[in-house]
Computed example of a mutant assay.
Amino acid sequence: MGVKRKGHHRPTAISHGRPPQFQKPAASLSSKATRTLIRSHHQLHKALAQAKARGDHAKAKSLQLEIDSHGGLESYQQASIKGQSSERGGDTSRLLMEWLRTLDFPNVTVHDKQKMRLLEVGALSANNACSRSSLFDVTRIDLHSQSAEILQQDFMKRPLPRNENEMFDIISLSLVLNYVPEAAGRGDMLRRTCQFLRPSSKSADSSAPFPCLFLVVPAPCVTNSRYLNESKLSDVMGALGYTMIKKKISPKLAYYLWTYDHDATKNDDTFKKVEVAGGASKNNFAIVLR
């Protein structure tokens, strides 16, 4: 089966988005300090990426000096690992496994009786819940791998599947989309996921969601943004062929499970950066679909 190529824009690399991770997190970081450090570095790296994109070398140099003065990437890496450790409830794949169990996923007709294929983008560990389940053939990638079991790779540069055997039943984007510094780049990433998902693998009597996308973003991205709310997110995802089947909004994170149907894709739909809610306290998180 041939692989359809969607979209007319060359995908943008995300190397200026999510910074690399540090292998040994500092145990002394408190929960509040972790959140503050992550937020500060996230904002600085976003501004740095924007300055570089504008060609503003003076501003980029100034921002880099500020990042270095805060401890550089090492301090960020420590906080990032600590903030997503199991002791902080950071293994989001536990919820994915709970959801799949409620959706009768063991009864799915698996290709050639093999394990379901899962692509975990931004993987931090090879020992999370989905890996321990023994139900998946997991491919793990991250911009800066700290493990031999995690391939160092930019998802936006990953070669497209040459055939259905190289495609996946599930893709996990857990706390990845929010590290893409530009709204259009986030749309490009979501569109690109469609090219890696297999055609439907449901059996006639199964309620399993495959192929599907597990998406996790900080809750304020959809609950407190000027440019994005859950309704608009659903519209964007719907244009790509996704339908929401599960969600959970906690004070910190928004979790979604989307089932994918290639035939429902609306290739001509675009979404610009348009305000959906005003207010001085709102953030500027947005998704632009080109």
Rank of each mutant, 00 (worst) to 15 (best):
F136Y: 07
K4L: 12
S250T: 15
M1V: 14
K248I: 10
P220L: 02
G71C: 06
H9L: 15
H70K: 09
A126M: 03
L96Q: 01
L173T: 05
M237K: 00
I287R: 09
D68R: 04
D142N: 12
S86R: 04
N229T: 10
K232P: 13
V3P: 02
Y227R: 00
K59Q: 05
R192C: 06
V276G: 07
V222P: 11
Q114Y: 01
A204I: 15
A254K: 01
A280H: 12
R226L: 08
V180S: 01
R132W: 05
H9W: 13
D91A: 07
L63T: 03
A148V: 02
D169S: 00
G2V: 12
H41S: 15
H41E: 15
M189Y: 10
K32E: 14
N127M: 15
Y260C: 03
Q43L: 15
R94I: 07
K61Y: 09
K248R: 15
A49N: 10
R158E: 07
P25M: 11
D188N: 02
G83H: 08
A51I: 00
S203K: 09
K32P: 11
A277D: 05
P209H: 01
H262W: 06
H262P: 01
R39Q: 07
Q78K: 06
M1K: 14
E166R: 02
S133T: 06
D56N: 02
S133V: 10
A183L: 09
D154E: 00
S80N: 09
T193R: 08
V222L: 08
T36L: 12
L197T: 07
F168E: 04
R5L: 12
T139F: 02
S225R: 02
A219I: 09
K115G: 05
S15D: 12
H262K: 14
A13G: 10
P159N: 10
A47H: 12
G241S: 05
K246T: 07
A254W: 08
V176L: 03
L215W: 07
D268P: 09
G241W: 03
A219N: 11
Q43S: 15
N127A: 11
S147D: 00
